[in-house]
Amino acid sequence: MNQEYTISADTIVSAMNWRYATKAFDRNKQLADADRAALLTALRLSPSSYGLQPWKFLVVDDNATRSKLGEAVPANKSKIEDSSMLVVLARRRVTTAQHVEQHVQTVQEARGVSAEELQPFKNMLTQSAAGRPAADQDVWNARQVYVALGCALTTAAMLKVDACPMEGVNPEKFDQTLGLAGSDFTTTVAIAFGYRDKSDPFASYSRARRAASEVIEFV
């Protein structure tokens, strides 16, 4: 059931001005369970084309696994190891007719509608999603993962949790370490959550953004 709620515009703008891509995390400060749960829920509830959710979110809590991932990408090693929560966002390589069938069944159960009512939707998905060439599907599914990434970053800002999205990953090595090699999924991007360390000079840098007039156009 949808619930009405209000968040002020000032609150949102303030949170977005506060956030930055954190370069150094305080490894001694951990997320509260409620904040951790909220961030994972934001990922799970993120929108995707047709609601297909072609993703998997791997929460890497094991320190040995984190160290192995850090060794694969030295530039991001400290973020991977020191952050309170590390999530690797993986995309489904290909959406099949079976995946469409599973999704339609989920919609049917969630909304209490009949299979007959959803048949046109199922037909459309089978043609539009599962019918695409595999290479096109892979690119399309990766784009869906980035939508989830954006939702998580915004949620973190609202919670006053620091975060750093990392495209600097080694998909092949990450897949091997995380057990994704040979599966339906592959690493796309990672995100570290936690609290900024006092040693991070980027925390005090002035925000560098182009003027609204340069990036926003009213048509």
Rank of each mutant, 00 (worst) to 15 (best):
T186P: 12
N17M: 05
S83A: 10
I12V: 09
N170W: 02
R132K: 11
Q3R: 02
G70Y: 00
S14T: 15
C164Q: 11
V87N: 12
V147K: 10
L178V: 14
D200T: 05
D61T: 15
H99L: 13
M124Y: 07
V73K: 00
A64P: 03
G131W: 12
G179Y: 10
V219L: 08
A203S: 15
W140P: 03
L43W: 00
V100C: 13
S46H: 14
Q105N: 12
S183L: 12
P133K: 09
K160T: 11
V219C: 11
L40N: 08
D175W: 09
E4G: 02
A129L: 13
S213I: 14
G194P: 12
A9W: 14
V215A: 11
L86E: 03
T187V: 11
L31C: 09
A148C: 07
R44T: 07
V147I: 14
G182F: 14
R91K: 05
R143C: 07
V94S: 07
M166R: 08
D61G: 14
R92S: 08
Y146H: 06
L89M: 15
A24R: 02
E214N: 14
F193C: 03
V189Y: 04
A130E: 06
Q53T: 10
E214D: 12
D26A: 02
P74E: 11
F193H: 00
Y5M: 04
F193Y: 07
R111T: 14
A34I: 05
F202L: 12
P171S: 04
T186I: 02
A212G: 08
A208M: 10
T41R: 07
V100R: 04
V59I: 14
Q105P: 01
V104F: 00
E172M: 04
Y50G: 08
F57I: 05
Q108I: 00
G70V: 03
T187H: 13
K23C: 12
A212N: 14
